[in-house]
Amino acid sequence: MIYWQLLWSFFQIGLFSIGGGYAAMPLIQHQVVEVHPWLTLTEFTDIVTLSQMTPGPIAINSATFVGMRIAGVSGALVATAGCVLPSCVIALLLAWVYYRYRSLSAIQGVLGGVRPAVVAMIASAGLSILLLALFGSEAINLSMVDLRALGLFLAALASLRIFKPDPIWVMAGAGVLGGILYSL
């Protein structure tokens, strides 16, 4: 019974969270705090924080966390499966449509219009992460700038532009350096 509830709740979260990332947050809160007594609001807030500190989409993270707490490993698996099920079906359908019709010139026109916007979206996501790293929040306060984070950012960016390494190493390196710098 509890598995069915987990599956159904996270299926809805997966289905209705269009736009990804923080768009999913209110939906998750509604399902796991308000509809079902699975988490307290404090625990939910912790999930959001944890999601920023750990890899993976917030919807998957909260599915795993809630499932684990409510019904152990099988609960985590069921909740996560429910969360990705809508993606699997709809994204595959769209992929099929895209590869079938993308050579049409009208579709080309639409995609050509959308491409610069995608770059802009990525830029804006990157900027909010940079501000979070530099100021601890998205509010800019020049006297509060985190010089260590600024140094790490510039060093990482320079090494990426010049040496073109695998980005994974840059991030892991920044993590290790951060661990050392912030301990000084």
Partner: peptide, 21 residues
């Protein structure tokens, strides 16, 4: 220690995104 490493990685992730942008 975990929170310090995470803070460092945040700056690294921002750099990767800026590089691609």
């Amino acid at each position: 220690i975990i929170s310090r490493v995470m803070k460092g990685m945040q700056a690294g992730v921002a750099a990767v995104i800026f590089d691609v942008v």
